[in-house]
Design a protein around this nucleic acid. Structure first.
Lengths: 240, 240
DNA sequence: CGGTTGTTTGACGCAGTTCAAGCGGAGTGG
DNA sequence: CCACTCCGCTTGAACTGCGTCAAACAACCG
């Protein structure tokens, strides 16, 4: 199970054997979370960082009004919470969308590993920079893209990311979100998300049913979304 | 001039003399940019990272449609472009809003400094994590806050950040943005930003005129925005 | 001065929200 | 096995926050 995490880190840099072993050794302590549970709660300050091994999680914030904004999805292999390593208590929560197995890595051990293998530190840093790139892309969407473009875009993005860790079969993949989740991620209402999904189906670009996405016309969908995967930094040699 | 940058880094960790000197030594090569010029262009891959010494810059993206989304503002002291240090070509640009003096620090020198002073590396990393927190906060705003709340929020945020580096005098500060800039930052139209500013003035919460902001009623404005400064990680002891 | 860039105001339109109501499937308890 | 409930999906109708269009105005500048 830790293989996907390894795979992701190796996108950041070519690891030596020793580095690989040191990294995998971090992932020994794992824990299972039920769907809907909080892996890390808002305001909490856990003594460990989290790596997703299986399942899907999301970062989210709930406003005083009760409105929820999902900030990102995390999939197998993602280091989802370096925040607590260097920063203060969490300013958002991480919730399990499906049942999830995660590794909880004590901060102390991360610091030790970085001290012994500085390049791993750079890889972790790089990973948080990629997270930032995702945030920016979503911001562009919420600020300047229509609902239709946003939904198309997120489907492209998720497909791309799942493919990169071997979790998509061709142009079809599991994405066990409700329309409500999707709406909270895109800053829309669930009803409007539904209408957009209908339109995507009618136009034979993609279908989303019962947590399964099928992309029927990748090129059209990509064009409709204005999706350019460079920001994901997948499949590009890192400058290290 | 590099003092503000030093001040900002010292928010991240208490520096030893040697670390302080090493950091300041990075900032020797400076360059002046005219208002409106690009400090770093989209798609570029500069051999250096940038530190703002004076002036204000913004990260932004321009979509094929011509729409612009501003992703963040940077002020004196901000390390605005660690992206290029560890990642691929820029997926967004950094533009000078006012005339700006910046330090351009060759990547090679950053890597050297980090190798000699690993704690500086952690401080840089931490800084990019704070950037991420800002992105998230803006995302929440664009997804789930009204135009009114968003504008109020950005005024609170900028005031807080400028105060932290000594660039605000009480509840008044220079913010040489056009209403168009503000609109592009909040994902709104300039006209609607104007309406919101009128309302804020009418309600005696804040005024924005000719690049000067005056906050008349901080507590009301804060409440209207739902502003909680914790995400800025200012004035909190870092866990390092 | 005229030209350019930003601000101001009003009228109108629409993308997306809210409200309301029915439907189906998955659990759960009798 | 049915009855009941929840939760998510679906659809339609009405509403509204914000965008678009248009036009005048002010400030700056070469």
């Amino acid at each position: 199970m830790p293989n996907r995490a390894l795979r992701k880190i190796q996108r950041h840099l070519a690891l030596s054997d020793a580095e690989r072993r040191a990294f995998l050794a971090l992932l020994t302590e794992t824990k299972l979370f039920k769907a809907g549970a909080d892996v890390v709660s808002d305001g909490e300050w856990p003594p460990h960082s989290t790596v997703i091994l299986t399942g899907i999680t999301c970062r989210y914030r709930v406003l005083p009004t009760g409105a929820r904004q999902i900030l990102a999805f995390q999939i197998a292999g993602d280091l989802c919470d370096m925040h607590s390593l260097l920063l203060q208590p969490m300013d958002h929560a991480i919730g399990a969308i499906t049942e999830c197995r995660v590794a909880q890595v004590p901060h102390r051990r991360i610091h030790e590993v970085i001290r012994r293998f500085p390049r791993l530190g750079l890889a972790f840093w790089r990973d948080t920079l990629v997270d930032g790139a995702l945030f920016r892309e979503w911001m562009v969407g919420m600020g300047r893209r229509s609902a239709y473009e946003r939904v198309a875009h997120v489907l492209c993005e998720v497909h791309f990311r799942l493919s990169a860790v071997g979790l998509a079969s061709g142009y079809s993949f599991e994405l066990p979100l409700t329309q409500i989740d999707l709406a909270d991620a895109m800053g829309l209402s669930a009803i409007h998300v539904h209408r957009v999904l209908q339109q995507l189906k009618r136009e034979k670009l993609a279908t989303f049913r019962k947590g399964t996405v099928v992309i029927h016309d990748w090129e059209q969908l990509r064009a409709a979304a204005g999706f350019d995967p460079r920001y994901l930094q997948i499949g590009q040699a890192p400058p290290m």
